[in-house]
Computed example of a mutant assay.
Amino acid sequence: MSTITTCWRGRVFAAIDEERRTMYLETSRLELLPLDPDEHTEALHEVYGNPAVMRWWTCPPLASVEQTRQVLAEEGTRPGAALWTLRRTADRSVIGMAGLLGGVAIPGLTWILAEQAWGHGFATEAATAVIDHAFTHMGHGRVEAWVESTNARSIAVCRKVGLSERGRLVQRYEHRERPHEMIVFGRASRPDPISVVHLQPVVQVADVTATATLLCAALAARVSFTVGEPADMAGIVLGPWSTGPGVRLVRCSPSTCAPVEIGLDVGSGFAELYQSVLGSGAVHVEPPVDQPWGRREFAFRLPEGHRIVVSTPN
């Protein structure tokens, strides 16, 4: 386990609130220097300009030192941000950045390492120091890390520093052609049992079996359980796993079924899913349209009038 010591650094990046100023941190192999764009950009540009390093980042490789300086300055001035430049104690070389993202509801754990520093545990060491500082000295009760589902290295770091999966969502960065799946990892400063682990809408339908068949054909769903003969209730899971996003169908009189709207966020396969809905026999299928809130959506209705909106980042 890394030993972490803290002391006040004499020169602090001026844009940081004096009451929340970033402290100098030290671990067994690293110095975490409060990030100063004027002092550290040139060394960090080798990291931010590397396509391999930036593969999972929120923007493409940065083309110039000045562009890197602007990005670092903007990140550092967000409310609540605390960012550090990582320097190896052994040779005093700058190998990356770590810290807490600002301007978010829950502090966002972030890190980026030079390619030559991969595989030596530096990210885990730096993230451990940041989390300890966030809980011990900044008074935060939680930290989160949003990691792309294909980023195996960062997922491993999250697990090593005690973060566990809290949820998933679909995003698309402006420089990407397709949306991608993000895993939200989180850790609380004290034991934080979760009482709600799944949310499932309950939809009233006249014919549970027929509606289940329609949803399976339209959305590549599957039936997880049924109750009664004919079915009074059925569980529908949207995905290949034992549990996940889904809906519960319950039988009621057609005259008492109250129409509802259900939103379904998807990543890849949006166009294929639309074609699947068209071929399923669903009624009132609305064609895909780009919405002003940054989503591309289509919708269809169940016989009782329930509207299902399928959405993806555009």
Rank of each mutant, 00 (worst) to 15 (best):
A206F: 12
A126I: 06
H198S: 10
S224I: 09
M138W: 03
R166W: 05
R222V: 01
S224Q: 13
R142N: 04
T226G: 02
A156H: 07
P201G: 04
R190V: 13
A221I: 13
T136G: 00
R153Y: 05
H137R: 05
A188K: 12
T211G: 00
P201D: 10
L219C: 04
R168K: 11
V157G: 01
S189P: 00
F185W: 15
G139A: 03
R168I: 02
R222W: 14
H180T: 06
E177H: 03
A127Y: 08
V161H: 04
T209G: 00
R222H: 08
A123K: 14
A217E: 15
A127R: 14
T128N: 12
V205F: 09
L163R: 07
V170C: 01
A188F: 10
T124M: 09
I131D: 13
V203T: 06
M138I: 04
G228Q: 14
T226D: 08
S164H: 11
A156G: 01
E181C: 05
Q200G: 05
T211D: 11
F135H: 05
V223Y: 12
G228P: 02
Q200L: 04
L163A: 08
H137G: 01
V223E: 15
Y173H: 10
S189F: 04
V196K: 06
A129L: 11
E125W: 14
Q200P: 02
L199A: 14
V227F: 14
V184K: 08
M182T: 02
R172L: 05
H137Q: 07
V223P: 09
H137T: 02
H140Y: 07
V147W: 00
F135D: 14
M138A: 06
V143W: 01
E144H: 06
H175E: 10
R166E: 13
S164N: 07
V205P: 01
T226A: 11
A145Y: 02
R178T: 04
A218M: 05
P179D: 14
F185P: 00
V143N: 06
R222M: 09
Q171R: 14
E177T: 06
V130F: 03
A134Q: 04
Q171C: 02
T209C: 00
H140F: 07
F135I: 09
W146V: 10
I183F: 06
E144I: 09
I194F: 08
V161Y: 04
L169D: 10
G228E: 15
L169P: 00
E144S: 10
L199Q: 13
V227W: 15
